[in-house]
Amino acid sequence: MLAPVLIFVYARPEHTRRTIESLAYNYQADDTDVFIFSDAPKNEKAIKNVTLVRDYIDTLPDKKLFKSVKIIKSEFNKGLANSIISGVNEIIELTQQVIVLEDDLITSPDFLSYMNDALKFYENDKKIWSVSGYTFNLDFPDKYESEVYLSYRGCSWGWATWKNRWDNVDWQVDDYMTFRIDKSLRKKFNRGGRDLSAMLDSQMKGDIDSWAIRWCYSQSKLDMFTIYPKVSRVKNIGLDGSGTHSGVSSKYDTSINTSNRRCEFDHPELNDKIIRLFKDRFGTRFEYFVVWNKALIKKMLRI
């Protein structure tokens, strides 16, 4: 039985259409159950686009693009973090595993087969926290033969996990006061990127509202890894200024898989060179604060 796909949409009708149409071109689309979670408008400005998104997704059940389509429309604005946490909680309780997309992710035709194969292959490997469909374009070592690699950090751009991993997330971050002043814990968390500890600080101060930083923090505490493909199965089209939580950037552009051959999974060793290359893509703690402060200033000027 294939894992269901959860798609979280808000107020980007064109991005939503492209996300769903690319998923519909997947080889296993006909056998996949899809749950679409639509958040309500945050303000009057968002009403038009939320309506356009909802008008579009309402047409999907009759198009028979997937095995089934269930649409869940929120009556009030939850925000992305609460939408994902509550949506995944609801479905993973029933299905034990999920594949998750947001409304700005183009998938390769083999995305579903890659994800389902990975979920099956790593189900009993208790060191694996999640599976990512996205990856950077990295300069892999010449002798690195595996088609996947390990990272200390999960990715929210097309991912999958199991209930027995998801249930271990501490959404309240109860030990934050200890973490905040413990240099060794902060260093450990930053193995996945120099921005991580600073992002968790911003989350706990209320400056940002991120489910993913709390998800990654629990992963770090449990010393678990995320499986990444060498060749991406996901392309993010949302870094164009249209998203609530994203600006404009080409930094994360990546080549997307075009091969019809199924990925051959194995149990790769942690590779120090790949970890360094991966970590460098997130810049420094200082760069994170510069980017965040610029975004905060722009937000304040619009108020």
Rank of each mutant, 00 (worst) to 15 (best):
L270I: 13
L2A: 02
W166D: 05
Y152T: 05
L105V: 08
K187P: 00
Y25R: 14
T244Q: 10
V291Y: 09
D33L: 00
R233P: 02
Y217F: 09
A3S: 14
I85N: 07
R302V: 10
A3Y: 06
D39E: 01
N26A: 11
L196S: 04
S113R: 14
G241W: 07
F136R: 04
K205D: 10
Y56N: 05
D240N: 15
D207Y: 12
L270E: 11
A118C: 04
L65Y: 12
I85F: 04
F189W: 04
I72S: 06
E14Q: 15
M1I: 05
I20A: 03
V169T: 11
M300E: 12
F66M: 00
V234G: 01
N236Q: 11
N137E: 08
L277P: 01
N271A: 04
L94E: 14
S259Q: 14
R302S: 14
K64L: 01
R261E: 15
V173L: 05
K294Q: 07
V291S: 12
R194G: 03
W162L: 12
S232M: 09
Y217E: 02
S22R: 06
L222F: 04
R281C: 07
T16W: 12
E14G: 05
A118Q: 07
L196C: 05
L52S: 14
D103H: 05
I99S: 03
R17F: 09
L94G: 00
G243P: 03
I72D: 09
I72N: 09
I227L: 10
Q172H: 10
N137W: 03
L239F: 11
D207K: 13
E14M: 14
I57D: 07
Y27A: 10
G158A: 08
Y144K: 03
M300C: 06
N137D: 13
V5N: 02
T178L: 11
L105C: 09
Y149V: 07
S113G: 03
K70P: 04
K221C: 07
Q96V: 02
F286H: 12
R285V: 05
E102A: 09
K63G: 00
S202M: 14
K230P: 08
V148H: 02
S246P: 02
E123R: 12
S218H: 06
I72H: 13
K127M: 06
D142W: 01
Q97D: 13
V5A: 02
T284Q: 05
S83D: 10
R276L: 15
T244W: 03
D272K: 15
N82E: 11
S218F: 01
W129S: 12
S74N: 13
K251E: 15
I181Y: 08
C263M: 13
F76K: 14
Y228C: 07
V69T: 11
S249G: 01
I7H: 05
W159R: 15
T244I: 10
